[in-house]
Nucleic acid binder design. Structure first.
Lengths: 338, 338
DNA sequence: AGTCTCCCGTAAAACGTTTTATGAAAAGCT
DNA sequence: AGCTTTTCATAAAACGTTTTACGGGAGACT
């Protein structure tokens, strides 16, 4: 591909026989440019394929059109859907998104938050790895930040989350209603705020069911090993996974061990993925409203970027609980009083 | 959060009692700065939390640290994994990624490719919606572009793809070996080059098996409807889905119709997802080497961004075929000569 | 015909950095 | 002591835009 010097506003101006200021006025639809000049400039822009340098434009005008998104891991489909929805909304408002991920590592998250500042985004939407954001967002970080999904460790941030405790409680109550006497709750780490909320919610509604918590970590091999231990040492009657990746590996582990749901082991997961409907029996899940979370997050960030200085705001969205075959005992429902 | 005027290199210079040029020299580790000044500048940078404006830096220095990635849809886990891997590699080379997606729409892809240019990325990695890239990358678009997964419609681009035809042929041959006499091959659209290659590959190795192609489109409802029609009108003995989303919806449709694999309908898919191993029987798949594709794409783009002007290059990576229960007939293998 | 007002195009400055050229001071050499 | 060379700090320019202030010309009014 033959390399040609890049086209700048000066090139366009020279070719059109006007000044760079006139080209800028045309491109930015400023009033009081003669129709003849408008036509001439537009024609040259099309001919040369000129595209304004958004960085230079922001430098001079101060007007932003970039926002940043920081997520723990783009391989997780939940985050992929989240970012995809955000992008659609951002584009409608004339923004592009700079998307970075932290590989589920708090040190990388710190580095990513630092690095993203250098692009001067107008604001940030952050799904933190664990929530210790105030350590990673120094006082000099002035841009508005909306936190999603995990609770930040300081009250300075707008937060969009789901009703973790209540939804996990619903699962716990359901399992208890079905007559299960013991349940292991598996989650990555209790230091991750939404995992802790879910555990606490589950614990609050266990009724007569004995609940225990196992922290399986974030690394697939470790998750697999701890779940394998859990299911082979003293197997509970039910297993409740508190996040998507834990749920996926939990299901793999129980199928590898030849355990079928719900007879050998009832299984529920706090996150919905398509495959959970496909396996037989289908899996009881808590479905998080990912697109609503993305919508609420973008709307709140838009307000902040627009100058809104209201007190910080927390929005909790409701999940839905999908009861499916993986937790239903034969006659289980009818044997318990409503 | 109290808004304070942003800190610039001038603020740092004033506070440190040096010139902006000295601050720049310190931050960029230029030789011949007195140790005392280095220490003073660093201390002020830390105190004020100053972060260089990468846009202004690139404007003056001409040195890039942003690359662009365009994918059809981030909700598709394959693209999520791809971008995640790219990001890790880019970061190792000191680059950030501007990630945009086209919502599987060629008009949006055109708009996205145009918009991403305004950020002046040093290069682009593009998974096109259908491959008609030369229409969406005008001659004025000089940055290096590496195309991934789908064939571009012009020979100007580096390409990283998989051996679609050969891998699909392997599935087709396997189905024929198993004794299936008819197979429907379902893919989004033949105008998408990798779908076309896969169909052609499957067709080339069908042997005695009757093959037919159904183009199901990209929109979930339409995919579901066409697959439903296909499976209820004149049901084939086998179904081979050519991409992930088609495979997911195909499996949903057959389970909704009460069809079990492989007895009622053998099922194979050209893409691997975790759930395909979890369902019973597990699904026969072609596993694409997503991380290797990302690695090869980044390496090639790095070379191009570094000034390499070798002729354009195509790299085809090999997929692996995972034969599982969804296509294995009882005694099917032993009845066919190797 | 002269004066005043309005329109329109643009020169120059500014944004935040980096680079380059320059000058002053210090160090080295004779 | 004087001259030459080297070091180091910085003034000014430059990157690609947008904004602002200014000047010239045209039109309107008397």
């Amino acid at each position: 591909m033959k390399r040609r010097p890049p086209v700048s506003i000066k090139t366009v101006a020279e070719r059109a026989g006007v000044s760079p200021a006139t080209v800028s006025n045309v491109l930015n639809a400023k009033p009081s440019v003669a129709p003849e000049l408008i036509e001439r400039v537009r024609s040259v822009v099309a001919e040369l394929g000129y595209v304004t340098d958004s960085n230079a434009s922001r430098l001079r005008s101060g007007k932003h059109s970039l926002a940043g998104v920081v997520v723990p891991d783009l391989s997780n489909p939940m985050f992929g859907t989240f970012v995809s929805t955000l992008e659609t909304l951002a584009r409608e408002d004339g923004f592009d998104l700079l998307v970075v991920s932290a590989a589920n590592d708090v040190e990388q998250e710190k580095e990513r938050l630092h690095a993203i500042r250098s692009w001067r985004p107008a604001g940030l939407i952050v799904i933190p790895c664990d929530g210790a954001l105030s350590q990673r967002t120094p006082p000099s970080m002035h841009m508005p930040i909306v936190v999603v999904d995990r609770l930040p460790d300081a009250p300075d941030f707008d937060l969009i989350a789901v009703n973790n405790a209540q939804s996990a409680a619903a699962i716990s109550a359901h399992l208890s209603e079905q007559g299960y006497r013991s349940c292991t709750v598996a989650g990555s780490m209790l230091s991750i705020s939404n995992i802790r909320e879910r555990w606490e919610g589950a614990a609050s509604a266990a009724g007569d069911m004995t609940l225990s918590m196992v922290e399986v970590g974030l690394e697939a091999k470790g998750i697999r090993r701890r779940l394998h231990e859990t299911l082979t040492q003293r197997r509970p009657e039910a297993l409740f996974a508190l996040d998507h990746i834990t749920g996926l590996i939990a299901y793999q582990t129980m199928t590898d061990l030849g355990l079928s749901a719900p007879g050998d082991l009832a299984f529920a997961c706090f996150d919905e993925a398509e495959w959970m409907r496909l396996v037989r029996p289908a899996i009881t899940t808590v479905r998080q409203p990912i697109e609503e979370m993305a919508t609420a997050a973008w709307q709140q960030l838009s307000r902040r970027m627009g100058g809104n200085a209201d007190p910080v705001r927390t929005l909790r969205l409701a999940c839905s609980v999908e009861v499916r075959g993986s937790t239903l005992r034969e006659g289980g429902r009818s044997s318990t009083a409503a």
